[in-house]
Design a binder for these strands. Structure first.
Length: 219
DNA sequence: ACCCAGGGTCATA
DNA sequence: TATGACCATGGG
């Protein structure tokens, strides 16, 4: 077996799908907004909400800070949990302001920035890592439900490991490699949407032979 | 009608 | 530490 399981799957997906060019956004702040809005929500619903925010010229921290909470909630209605998410966007832009702005945040070391992100109400581990990787271009990996499901099926993990345990595994497979960590998460999401949605061993799956072998060893 | 989607918080045992 | 309730829209 050549290389770690994490590296094998990456190589297989990359050959199958090529480059994805994530995250779909026109600015770092738009990445941050999308990361909050997509929490437990289909991306198509988030796209409409972001389009509404763009139409209202609200894709800037100061603009979100200035708009009314109810107004904000109604604009992001399509993304679901709109009352919760409106409050989370408010908390996010308040945090940006209190931190001295996006430029100041961009100068912080990754571990400091991560710890500060996790203090924001509504920003958990996955949202924080989305923001670190795709808005601030830091070498972290995003563990989502797709990643757990895929690697569980491959036999490489149990699936219920703690977030930080899994994150460390992927980051150690591609240390300080922002480009590959970026592409990897994008590929996993793309693959999940493409074929292996509800069952293993789907025909045409890029990982079919890995599934057929039965299991990949952890590590 | 039911299930799920690019989670997180809070209360409870 | 680890479940459970809650948040809510839209597509399959």
């Amino acid at each position: 077996m050549k290389g770690s399981c994490e590296r094998q799957v990456f190589e297989r997906l990359r050959l199958a799908y090529g480059t994805s060019g994530w995250w779909p956004a026109e600015s770092g702040f738009e990445v941050m907004v999308g990361a909050v809005l997509t929490q437990n929500t289909a991306w198509a619903n988030v796209e409409r909400a972001i389009a509404e925010l763009r139409r209202a010229d609200l894709l800037a921290p100061e603009a979100i800070a200035a708009v009314g909470l109810g107004q904000l909630a109604s604009l992001i209605r399509s993304s679901g949990y709109f009352n919760v998410k409106a409050a989370r966007l408010k908390a996010l832009v308040a945090w940006i302001h209190d931190s001295g702005g996006l430029e100041a945040l961009g100068r912080m070391p990754t571990e400091v920035l991560r710890a500060r992100l996790l203090e924001v109400k509504g920003v958990g581990p996955e949202t924080a890592d989305d923001i670190l990787l795709y808005a601030f271009h830091r070498p972290v990996f995003v563990i989502d439900a797709y990643t757990r499901r895929l690697f569980s099926r491959l036999g490489a993990i149990r699936g219920n490991e703690h977030y930080e345990i899994l994150r460390r595994r992927f980051e150690e497979a591609f240390p300080d490699d922002v480009a590959r960590l970026n592409e990897y998460h994008a590929l996993i999401v793309r693959h999940a949407k493409d074929v292996c949605r509800s069952r293993p061993l789907c025909p045409g799956c890029a990982l079919k032979d890995l599934c057929a072998v039965g299991a990949l060893q952890p590590g």
